[in-house]
């Protein structure tokens, strides 16, 4: 593999890791507040559909302001994801339902709704209308990428790896230190972590446990919405049934692999993104005459996570109050 090919691989890694980063951070807020969220996949799918559908429908009406349509699409994606997240909260926080069951319900419901509505509204077998470049978040070329790109060694890094991504990719990378700051350096973050470890203590301090968890789920909804929208209006150019293809669960795996911490989760996302890039590259490749089993790369994130959870490489300890509905003593 040449130097330039390696750069291209890393470039692909970044693009493939972006939805994982958003979704893993989304899961981080929910799970750190003590609410398990296996519904990341459903929220991604729902927001991917909403973003693509709205971006497609709204474009002709915007006239000269067509550049706004990806933003309107993103907003729609976020709204749908937040709504699903609030449904999760309504079931698990307000009514103390089982968080896993609620997550399963949201996954099945969102997946079904996206296709059922899409097929009825767009009559394209579940796909939404193809989006033009003005309706999507397109690659941003950084100043001087053309000229600097010719410089050996450093040039390709700047021109391919740093420049030439869409806005959401950069946003994902910014979201990581921001999340770390929020979780570890702000009052909200302290309360968030406390409510996930020992909600009774938070309650004693006069802070509402349900409201704290709802706030966490709103953030989860927003981030998951961006993740889903990225799939359909930035990385892709329309909604395709089941386009999230388990990414919500890979993000969940990355979150666990990163032990529920922002930066380790980010690196896990990059690793899993790299595996996906590798899988795409190895398609049909052979090593010593034997076909490379690309499915091994697909399974790797899950295998890693299982091994980690079993405590064979370090220890992943979930937030202590995770999965348990909080009942205020009376």
């Amino acid at each position: 593999m040449s130097y330039f090919e390696i750069i291209l691989m890393l470039d692909a890694t970044l693009r493939l890791a972006t939805p994982l980063i958003f979704a893993a951070l989304a899961g981080l807020y929910a799970e750190r507040s003590g609410v398990f969220d296996i519904g990341l996949e459903g929220k991604m799918l729902g927001s991917a559909f909403a973003a693509a559908a709205v971006a497609a429908v709204v474009y002709p009406h915007l006239g000269g302001a067509g550049w706004l349509s990806p933003w309107v699409g993103l907003l729609a994606g976020i709204l749908v994801s937040v709504a699903l997240s609030m449904l999760h909260g309504f079931a698990c926080i307000t009514h103390r339902g089982n968080q896993i069951v609620s997550g399963v319900a949201i996954n099945i419901l969102a997946g079904g709704l996206a296709i059922a509505l899409g097929r009825a509204w767009f009559a394209r077998g579940g796909q939404t209308d193809q989006l033009g470049n003005e309706q999507r978040f397109t690659a941003i070329t950084w100043p001087g990428a053309e000229t600097i790109g010719d410089i050996p060694v450093i040039g390709p890094i700047y021109a391919e790896l740093i420049s030439g991504h869409n806005l959401l990719v950069y946003l994902a990378i910014l979201a990581v230190p921001l999340t770390a700051f929020v979780v570890y350096r702000t009052r909200f973050g302290l309360r968030l972590r406390a409510v996930g470890e020992n909600p009774a203590a938070v309650d004693t301090a006069g802070i509402s446990v349900p409201w704290m968890r709802y706030k966490a789920l709103i953030v989860t909804g927003v981030l998951c919405g961006i993740s889903g929208s990225y799939l359909s209006i930035a990385h892709g150019a329309s909604f395709v049934p089941n386009m999230s293809a388990g990414k919500g669960f890979i993000a969940l795996a990355a979150l666990i692999f990163g032990k529920w911490r922002p930066f380790p989760a980010f690196f896990a996302c990059l690793l899993f993104g790299f595996l996906e890039a590798l899988e795409q590259r190895m398609q049909g490749a052979t090593i010593g005459g034997l076909a490379v089993p690309v499915q091994l790369f697909q399974a790797m994130p899950y295998i890693f996570t299982v091994i980690l959870l079993a405590g064979f490489i370090g220890r992943a300890v979930a937030p202590r109050a995770g999965g348990i509905p909080y009942v205020k003593e009376r």
Binding site: A91, H95, G97, V101, I108, L109, G112, R119, A120
Partner: peptide, 24 residues
């Protein structure tokens, strides 16, 4: 206009109401 995925919608809703929202 109604396709098979409508079944998934019903299933999801049943899990939601009968499972997650059972205490509602």
């Amino acid at each position: 206009a109604i396709d098979r995925e409508m079944q998934q919608v019903i299933q999801g809703l049943i899990i939601l109401f009968a499972g997650a929202l059972e205490y509602m």
